[in-house]
């Protein structure tokens, strides 16, 4: 039995009164518990799709379905609660003058969930930080700790889907490994579904079950992670992209 959480049908997104079409007829289906990747170069439309799914931009044609129902133009609270976004740059996405505690309490209050203190402690533990981090400001945290807080902020409202926009591309490789491990564990333990955007094919192949390759606003093809590893691709562009990303070090 298929249990589709998120589906896009003929999703087309334009800007400037149709002068620029950033996404053209994108189509994908993501099952519950799956991790789905969008990959491509700058300007290919991958982040635009993510923003439309998150409800940050609802001016699109076609439709996005969540648990089988089309998302309305005016999203309701429960939609925002169900789908939370983690942004690329933890330096830019946390308010510099808010303590971790305030950052985490805000979404709880917005969603009217109550039980703030317990939720904050629990979510901090979940992302591998102690309760003492409540009283820190972003400038007192390392890049990796900030990204953990950004993930905690998304998790605290108990979402079903995490929308991950290049969650590790601003981090060092050693910190990247920690954050990717954390995301892997959270998906397994909390039964989350991921829609992840990246330009790093190795990261996507590590994290995702299936990957859509995008170019000029279109999804060129959809392949599985084993296909990526084996180089089993249909499109020339995908082959070129894989070749350009191939690592030089073979140990």
């Amino acid at each position: 039995m298929r249990d589709t959480v998120l589906e896009a049908v003929d999703l087309t997104i334009s800007f400037n009164d149709g002068a620029v079409t950033a996404v053209k007829g994108a189509k994908f289906r993501i099952e519950r518990g799956e991790s789905y990747g969008l990959i491509g170069e700058s300007g290919c439309g991958k982040s635009t799709i993510l923003r439309a799914v998150a409800g940050l931009n609802t001016d699109y044609d076609g439709s996005i379905l969540f648990e089988g129902r089309e998302l309305p133009e005016r999203r309701r609270k429960e939609h925002f609660r169900a789908m939370q976004m983690v942004f690329q740059d933890p330096y830019g996405s946390l308010h510099p003058r808010k303590m971790v505690q305030a950052v985490l309490a805000e979404p709880v209050r917005l969603m009217g969930l109550g039980d703030e203190q317990r939720r904050i402690d629990e979510v901090l533990r979940n992302v591998g930080l102690g309760p003492e981090f409540r009283f820190r400001y972003p400038h007192e945290l390392s890049g990796g700790q900030r990204q953990r807080i950004a993930i905690a902020r998304a998790l605290i409202v108990e979402p079903k889907v995490l929308l991950l926009d290049e969650p590790t591309s601003a981090l060092d490789v050693s910190v990247q490994a920690e954050i990717l491990n954390l995301l892997t564990r959270l998906r397994r333990e909390l039964g989350l579904t991921y829609l992840m955007v990246s330009h790093d094919i190795a990261v996507i192949a590590h994290m995702c079950d299936r990957v859509a390759i995008m170019q000029h606003g279109r999804i060129l093809e959809e392949i599985t992670a084993p296909d990526v590893r084996a180089g089993r691709v249909a499109e020339d562009y995908t082959r070129e992209f894989l070749a350009a990303s191939a690592p030089a070090i073979t140990a």
Partner: peptide, 20 residues
């Protein structure tokens, strides 16, 4: 060695990445 190990690799799928 640890830095190299912590990179996700296309040729070797791994459940978890080694942390330095």
């Amino acid at each position: 060695r640890a830095l190299l190990e912590s990179l996700p690799r296309l040729d070797q799928p791994r459940a978890e990445l080694p942390v330095i």
